[in-house]
Structures are given as structure tokens and as C-alpha cells.
């Protein structure tokens, strides 16, 4: 199976039942995308497929063939962080960091979708990404900040 991940061709030997999440973490060595629930409930596994945010745990790897997959590892340009990454860092929009890649991937898409117009809109549209450390207030601040700069 051949996937396009972060602009690179990745050739993997996968079973049809393998999720995109497991393909990334267990086969492609891209562990930045996290498994929190494996049932589409927590958002930790959020990636972009052709620019849209999806939960990779509920996406079969086979279904991602021929599409552009972007993960947290593909967001920065070399040493330059994506503005959303920089905003999360500056706002301390995490504690343990495990949900963070999913939060950032959702947040980037959210801004692109035009859903970051107000704090209330950010809160509503980020509610598919659970942060058990409770950094929500800082996550809203980071997205507001990054959206303003975008």
C-alpha cells in the first residue's frame, strides 16, 4: 500500500483492516499522531486528509490511498514552527502533551474552515478534542492568537 504522508511517498505492507492511525504509528514510524480511545471519541488521532480534519482511528489506511495525509510531523517548515504550534507553545496550551498533536491539527483546520471567529465558536468547534489535563482555557487563547495572525 502506498500513502502520501507529509508530501512523501510511504510504501507499507498492511492488512486491509489496518487503521490509518495504526499505519502511521506502528508501521510508518510516525508516532506524533496519538491513540487515545481508538473509537473516534477523543480527537487525539486527528490528521488532515486533503486538508480536512479526520480522526485517523476511524479511517482505514486503504481509504487514504491517493490522498494527501498531513500529520503533526508535517506541519512545521524545518525548524520554523507553524504559527499554531508556536501559539500552543507560547500559551502553554497543554500539560502532558499527549492530546496536543490532535488539538493542533484540529485547530489549524478550524482556522482554515473559518470557525475561529469568536471564543465561543472556537470552544464549540474544538470540543471533539479532549484534553484531560484541562488546558482548554489556554487552547482557546492560542487559537485566538494564531487565527489573528493568520
Amino acid at each position: 500500500m502506498v500513502l502520501q504522508v507529509n508530501g512523501q511517498r510511504v510504501s507499507l505492507s498492511l492488512e486491509p483492516r489496518t487503521s490509518l492511525l495504526d499505519a502511521l504509528r506502528e508501521y510508518a514510524g510516525l508516532t506524533g499522531t496519538k491513540k487515545g480511545c481508538d473509537r473516534g471519541s477523543c480527537g487525539a488521532c486527528t490528521v488532515h486528509i486533503d486538508g480536512r480534519r479526520v480522526v485517523s482511528c476511524l479511517t482505514l489506511a486503504a481509504r487514504a490511498q491517493g490522498k494527501a495525509v498531513t500529520t503533526i510531523e508535517g506541519l512545521a517548515s524545518g525548524d520554523d514552527l507553524h504559527p499554531m504550534q508556536a501559539a500552543f507553545l507560547h500559551h502553554d496550551a497543554y500539560q502532558c502533551g499527549y492530546c496536543t498533536p490532535g488539538q493542533i491539527m484540529s485547530a489549524v483546520a478550524l482556522v482554515q474552515e473559518g470557525h475561529a471567529g469568536s471564543d465561543a465558536e472556537i470552544r464549540e468547534n474544538m470540543s471533539g478534542n479532549i484534553c484531560r489535563c484541562g488546558a482548554y482555557a489556554n487552547i482557546v487563547g492560542a487559537i485566538r492568537d494564531a487565527a489573528g495572525r493568520a
Binding site: 508516532t31 506524533g32 500529520t71 512545521a76 514552527l81 504550534q85 500552543f88 507553545l89 497543554y94 498533536p101
Partner: peptide
């Protein structure tokens, strides 16, 4: 000051237990 492991956390480079190769 910003968290010193922050960069690892926002880039996916922070390695949690199941992620060691």
C-alpha cells in the same frame, strides 16, 4: 518561561512509552 519540552510536544517529537522503536 515557556515549557522546555514544549517544542517536542507541539511537533510530535515527544516520545511516550508505546512509541519507542
Amino acid at each position: 518561561i515557556d515549557r522546555r519540552d514544549g517544542r517536542q510536544k507541539v511537533t510530535g517529537a515527544a516520545t511516550y512509552a508505546a512509541e519507542f522503536a
